[in-house]
């Protein structure tokens, strides 16, 4: 992988990467740190990308690890009050708040597949879980999300 391809792919997937980081971190400062770390780590480990067509899944996995590292380093507890007042309000605040209430294990595969269009296999590869687990978690996530939204 050369630098031009790397920069071009990160640009193309930047929106997706931000949304995935948001899913885990809820905070733009933390997202910024994680995105930066992920880019640098991805370049260091560029030889581990077997085929260019898997770039999206590959960079997503690196970003997820970077988000967890960021959480550990920053040791912040994001309260519900912070979640309810994002710096830049999303177009659908109700949906955003309902999504934030889901457990992370359910929220992340839901976002990967239903927001970012990943296949169950791609999400399973990014999350290191079996495909059946991804399917099950998405099903439960939708059920919980439906209940949250119906309650609004």
């Amino acid at each position: 992988m050369d630098k031009d391809f790397f920069v071009q792919e990160l640009e193309a997937h930047s929106g997706m990467l931000y949304r995935v980081a948001c899913t885990l971190l809820h905070d733009d400062d933390a997202c910024r740190d994680a995105l930066q770390d992920a880019a640098l780590k991805a370049w260091e480990k560029r030889h581990s990308l077997r085929e260019k067509r898997f770039f999206r899944t590959w960079i997503t996995r690196i970003l997820i690890n970077a988000c967890y590292d960021t959480i550990r380093k920053r040791r912040r507890i994001v309260s519900l009050e912070e979640i309810r007042e994002p710096q830049t309000p999303p177009p659908d605040l109700t949906l955003s708040l309902a999504l934030a209430k889901l457990p992370e294990k359910l929220r992340l595969p839901l976002v990967l597949c239903c927001s970012e269009g990943m296949s169950y296999q791609e999400a399973a590869d990014a999350l290191h879980v079996p495909v059946a687990t991804v399917r099950g978690r998405i099903h439960r996530a939708k059920g919980m999300l439906r209940k949250e939204l119906d309650a609004e």
């Binding site: 931000y18 949304r19 948001c22 830049t88 955003s96 999504l99 976002v111 927001s115």
Partner: peptide, 13 residues
């Protein structure tokens, strides 16, 4: 439309 749950990516990010 799950994307509507997210704000636009800030320029700083």
């Amino acid at each position: 439309n799950l994307r509507a749950a997210f704000p636009e990516m800030p320029e700083s990010c």
